[in-house]
């Protein structure tokens, strides 16, 4: 079976005067998957989305979205996509219902069809109660949900989400995540940009790490973690035992163990998948190291990022467990468009 790509780009470049926002970005997003474009501020994420959604043309390179060339067939691309911008791009001076009705009309849904689609989306995103109020009075998270709903008005085959949760509180972020997950489960292709590793980890099937205008790593969240290796951390009962513990870990892994005198820990990267936690503990015990705690865990995406780019990415506010309240998303029937 051949893979159909919803988004395909080759050597995308974009210059703004002297600034090279993109320096040859290649993307291949298979249909029906969620791709996370992960990178720090200024990496070129938003520029990539602007080109793919026909908002601006590339300086060089080519891109196809839903089978259509973004520069030669922009109208066909626009019929196939939904876009939710970095900043809520609904009209603050209109009510939620008026906003959706407007975008429905402009997407060709007139009269009863537009009204029905509006009410369906308001219901789906839990906005029915506030729909009659001017959106400037809404909370940031509620507005972002309306923005997402506006992006879905055309029943898009490919949905672009540019930093969908930037600036939101944890509860609102969980609601957006739940909504995106539901869309993905229904078969939509989603390309989302984020500077939050947790977001990419939670939502994306594949992650493209971008920095300085090009992709520096591509893979599944698990695959990326495997490439970087696991992290072993050992705590001993006295600071004097640290050098001995470090020597054992150095022999086992060939890595360069890092000592933390204050926490009395030694940490090291483990790239040998055959090395297990019992194996490490046994070796330490045999060397007479008084171990009080030991762990071997997958690296966080923060660590992945640090290894790949040499800089730490922006860290998100960690959502609290009780905030994990999902949006009540009703089943919406999706009309499949013929390619």
């Amino acid at each position: 079976m051949t893979t159909t790509y919803a988004v395909l780009s080759e050597g995308l470049e974009k210059n703004y005067g002297e600034v090279h926002a993109l320096r040859g970005l290649d993307l291949a997003v298979p249909e029906g998957t969620v791709c996370g474009l992960l990178g720090p501020n200024g990496a070129g994420k938003t520029t990539a989305v602007r080109i793919l959604t026909t908002l601006t043309g590339p300086t060089a390179g080519r891109a196809r979205v839903a089978g259509h060339d973004v520069t030669r067939e922009p109208a066909a691309v626009r019929r196939a996509i939904g876009v939710t911008g970095q900043y809520a791009s609904v009209d603050g001076d209109l009510t939620g219902r008026e906003n959706l009705r407007l975008f429905a009309r402009l997407a060709g849904l007139r009269g009863r069809a537009g009204r029905a689609r509006t009410e369906e989306l308001l219901e789906r995103f839990g906005l029915t109660e506030v729909a009659g109020r001017v959106t400037a009075t809404w909370s940031g998270g509620t507005r972002r949900r309306l923005d997402l709903a506006a992006g879905l008005i055309t029943r898009p085959r490919v949905l672009f989400l540019d930093e969908p949760t930037t600036g939101l509180d944890p509860a609102a972020r969980e609601q957006i995540w739940a909504a995106v997950r539901t869309l993905a489960d229904e078969g939509a292709t989603v390309l989302l940009t984020t500077q939050y590793l947790e977001e990419a980890d939670r939502l994306a099937d594949d992650i493209v790490v971008i920095d300085g205008g090009r992709a520096i790593a591509t893979g599944t969240p698990a695959g990326l973690k495997a490439r970087i290796g696991s992290r072993a951390e050992v705590t001993v009962d006295a600071a004097e035992a640290l050098p001995r513990a470090a020597a054992v870990l150095d022999r086992l892994t060939g890595g360069r163990p890092a000592l933390d005198e204050e926490r009395r820990t030694v940490g090291v990267t483990v790239s040998d998948a055959g090395l297990t936690l019992p194996g490490i503990v046994r070796a330490l015990d045999a060397a007479g190291v008084p171990v009080t705690d030991a762990s071997l865990r997958q690296p966080t995406l923060d660590e992945v990022f640090l290894r790949l780019t040499g800089t730490a990415p922006a860290t998100p506010v960690t959502p609290t467990a009780q905030a994990a309240q999902a949006t009540q998303a009703t089943q919406a029937t999706r009309k499949e468009h013929a390619a």
């Binding site: 908002l55 626009r78 876009v83 970095q86 402009l106 997407a107």
Partner: peptide
């Protein structure tokens, strides 16, 4: 400057 123009420009209108 409030992103509404860009929203319009992504629509098939």
């Amino acid at each position: 400057h409030r992103g509404v123009t860009d929203r319009f420009r992504t629509l098939p209108m």
